[in-house]
Structures are given as C-alpha cells and as structure tokens.
Simulated assay, not measured.
Amino acid sequence: MNADDEQLMRGRVYGRDHDDPDPGPLPHARYAVLVGGPLDGLLLDITGWRPEEIDDGIALPTELSRWPGGRAFYDPRPGEPRPAGGPGVVCRLHYSGDTP
C-alpha cells in the first residue's frame, strides 16, 4: 500500500466502494475503528451488533493483507472501554494477524 492508498482509506467505512461519492460514516450508525494492520484507520459498521459479537473479534476479507484475498483479524483489547451509547465510533478493534 502506498501513500495514495492510505489517504484514500482514511475516514472510509470498510466494505463501501472506494469510488462511492461519500464513503464516510453515516450519522445514525455505530462504528468500530480498525487499529493497525492493513485496514488501519477504516471504520467498521457495527450497527445492531451485540456486545458478544464485538468481544469475539472479526476476520475481515481484504486484498491488502499479507495474502491478497485473505482475512485480517481484529479484536478488542481486554478492559478497553466501549461506550454503550448512541451512534458514532463506540470502540476500537486492534489488528492481531492475518490468514490466507
């Protein structure tokens, strides 16, 4: 990934088209910010997720991992606060590795 790719990804929601005229967050949705790894800085829409689903972490398909077409793992850090409130960024998920 080069500097242009990184700039393109900032403030973008994972899974939304890079050529979407507004790939940013929606005002009514809840997001986790992805920290580190190939998807660093992207937002993951977790609207409607139960706390257990967030606690389990997630494997996200990406062409940017060590293995293009593989999955990047993101997990919450134990003890890191997650506000139970309304919309916006409510938690962070940290990169923990990837797999083919």
Rank of each mutant, 00 (worst) to 15 (best):
D56F: 14
Y74C: 05
R30L: 12
D55C: 07
D75S: 14
L26P: 04
L39R: 00
Q7P: 05
T47G: 05
V33E: 15
W67Q: 10
G36W: 06
R50D: 14
L60W: 01
R30C: 15
L60S: 01
R12L: 04
L8R: 12
L43D: 04
P27A: 08
P38Q: 06
R10N: 11
E53I: 10
P27S: 06
R12H: 08
P25Q: 11
D19K: 13
L26E: 14
Y74D: 05
P61Y: 12
I58E: 11
T62I: 08
G57Q: 07
R71P: 03
E6L: 14
G70F: 08
G36Q: 05
D22P: 04
R10I: 12
D56L: 15
L26T: 13
L60H: 03
V13P: 00
D17T: 11
M9W: 10
A32W: 03
M9K: 09
R12W: 01
E63N: 13
I58C: 10
W49D: 06
G37L: 05
R10T: 13
I58F: 09
A72F: 08
W67L: 09
G57M: 11
D17F: 09
P61V: 12
G70A: 02
L42F: 01
T62A: 05
D17R: 12
A29M: 13
P68V: 09
E52I: 15
D5L: 08
D4T: 14
R66Y: 11
P38L: 05
P21I: 06
V35N: 03
R30I: 10
Y74G: 07
R30Y: 02
G11M: 02
A72H: 04
D17K: 10
A72D: 02
A59H: 09
I58R: 07
R16G: 02
I58H: 01
P61A: 12
G37P: 06
D4E: 11
G69C: 10
D55A: 15
L8D: 08
F73L: 14
D17E: 13
P38S: 08
R12Y: 01
D75K: 13
D20F: 02
V13A: 00
L64M: 11
D75C: 12
P51C: 11
T62M: 03
G70W: 07
Q7W: 10
V35F: 02
P61Q: 12
R30K: 13
G37S: 06
P25R: 09
E53C: 07
G69D: 04
L44E: 00
I58P: 01
D5E: 14
G69P: 05
D45N: 07
E63M: 11
G37N: 04
P51I: 12
R50T: 15
E52D: 15
P68S: 08
S65V: 11
G41E: 01
I46P: 00
P51H: 08
R66N: 09
A59R: 03
E53P: 09
L34D: 04
A29S: 14
R10P: 04
H28Y: 15
D40K: 00
D20P: 04
L42C: 05
E53V: 11
L39C: 03
D55H: 08
E6A: 15
T47Q: 04
H18R: 15
Q7T: 12
M9G: 09
W67V: 13
L60Y: 02
H18Y: 15
P38K: 03
